[in-house]
Amino acid sequence: MACINPDGTLTRPGRSILEAMRQPAPLNQVSTGSGVPLYRVRSVIRELLVAELAYADGELYQVTEKGIEKLDS
């Protein structure tokens, strides 16, 4: 996965995108906050949602408790 390394740790874009979602944010803001191009944010967020590290509330995205644990570990 583009957001999680084989050892379970977050990849560089995975981490910066999750960091940008500590507060609920729309995709554009996540892209600006993380410095990751919008197309890649969309791709990585798809994987973060499947891994339950992030959740969507309408057009806003936010890190989950599980995601915060990953970020802080």
């Binding site: 996965m1 583009a2 197309y39 890649r40 969309r42 990585v44």
Partner: peptide, 13 residues
Amino acid sequence: TLGTLRLEDFKGS
């Protein structure tokens, strides 16, 4: 090389 991408990921660009 940057993960799985869809055409729709580029929407808006």
